[in-house]
Amino acid sequence: MNLLTIDKLTAGYGKLTILHDLSLKVEKGQYLGILGPNGSGKSTLVKSIFGLTDIFSGSIKISGQELVGVATENICKRGLAYVPQRQNIFATMTVRDNLLLAVRHLRRPKAHRALQDAYALFPILAERQQQSAGLMSGGERQMLAIALAWLGKPQIMLLDEPSAGLSPLFVIEIFKLLRRLCESGITLVVVEQNARSLLRWCDYAYVLREGKLAFEGSSSQILADEETVKSYLGVGGTAFSQRIAE
């Protein structure tokens, strides 16, 4: 069954149209990748789901319910969570206050338990509790950002380049963590530029190019059919296809 369905979405910023007539679907329990070169509209796509862009036409449905027109602050109630590409933590607040914000709807004992669960899943955060979140390393910040989204107990999590700018060790750590989250029953939509590392972990992927769908298929299909990907991405030898070929 489709959990999230995007149908003929055209969206952008102000008068600028970035996404053109984009359709895609996410099945329950799927680990979906969104790939594409710089500026292809990957972030715009996930932002649109959270009402952070201007949507000109099309529909976005979660379990059959329309999301277009729902205010950003009410989207998390529909079982979605989103980890933005940049500025995805409250940098001036302590790690603990970040987490407490995410569990504020729960009663005391439940909130406490949720926090303990988060510390179990993200041990580094337990060590950094009292630290100002903005003073953490890139990898630690990313952990916190994922924890913030995870604490909302979402059915589906959207992550925008969770591995960007991290050391190779941390990248693997993040992808392992995401795999675990997926196995625990959360549907994942992960945006990546680094196609090779994502395709190793996800089930299915969409490739965007200039705001349009260029290609879709299971990870193995995409990895195998390198020629197709290259041709869809055009511009012989882009960094993207090189990265796939590596």
Binding site: F50, L52, A71, T72, E73, N74, I75, C76, K77, A81, Y82, P84, Q87, N88, I89, F90, A91, T92, M93, D97, L100, L101, A102, R104, H105, L148, G152
Partner: peptide, 24 residues
Amino acid sequence: TNLGREMRALADNRALARVQGVQV
């Protein structure tokens, strides 16, 4: 308090606060 954390969250990062469901 939760209200206080919501205020600080809004002060810090409005978009993220809304994503986290803070009723602006």
